[in-house]
Amino acid sequence: MNYLKFLILALFSSTLLNIQAQEKKSYKIQTVAFYNLENLFDTINDPTKFDEASPMMELKTNRSKVYKKKVHNMARVIADIGFKDTQNSPAIIGVSEVENRDVLEDLVNDSLLISRDYGIIHYSSPDVRGIDVAMLYQKKLFTPISTSSHELKIYDDLTSKRVYTRDQLLVSGNLDGDLIHVIVNHWPSRSGGEARSRPKRVAAAKLTKHLVDSLQVIDPYAKIFIMGDLNDDPTNESVKDVLKTQKNKNNVSFKDVYNPFETFFKNGLGTTAYRDAWSLFDQIMISKPLLEKDFSSYRFYKAGIFNENYLTQKSGQYKGYPYRSWGYGGFTDGYSDHFPVYMYVIKEVEN
Rank of each mutant, 00 (worst) to 15 (best):
V95H: 04
I183S: 00
D106G: 06
T208C: 10
S197P: 05
Q138H: 08
Q168K: 12
G119N: 09
Q138I: 10
L158P: 10
Y155A: 04
Y164L: 14
K209Q: 13
R101D: 06
V133W: 01
V128E: 15
I121C: 08
L136V: 03
Y123E: 10
Q168H: 13
W187H: 00
D176S: 15
I131G: 02
V103N: 08
L152K: 02
T165F: 02
P126V: 12
K140H: 10
V202E: 03
M135K: 06
V163K: 09
S189N: 07
R196Y: 14
E99Q: 08
E194R: 07
V133M: 08
R198A: 14
T143I: 13
V202N: 03
D102P: 04
V108A: 04
A195G: 11
Q87L: 15
Y164T: 12
V95M: 05
S115T: 13
L169K: 02
I183E: 01
L211K: 04
R166Q: 10
E151A: 12
S148G: 15
R196H: 13
F142A: 03
H210M: 14
R129L: 02
N185D: 03
I120E: 10
I131N: 04
I183Y: 02
M135W: 07
V171S: 06
S124A: 14
L211P: 08
I180A: 05
V163A: 08
D176C: 13
Y164N: 13
A204G: 09
Q168D: 06
I120V: 15
I183T: 01
V171M: 06
S189A: 10
Y137G: 05
G192I: 04
Y155S: 06
K200R: 12
H210Y: 13
A134Y: 02
V182D: 08
P126F: 12
D117A: 15
D167A: 05
V103H: 07
A203Q: 02
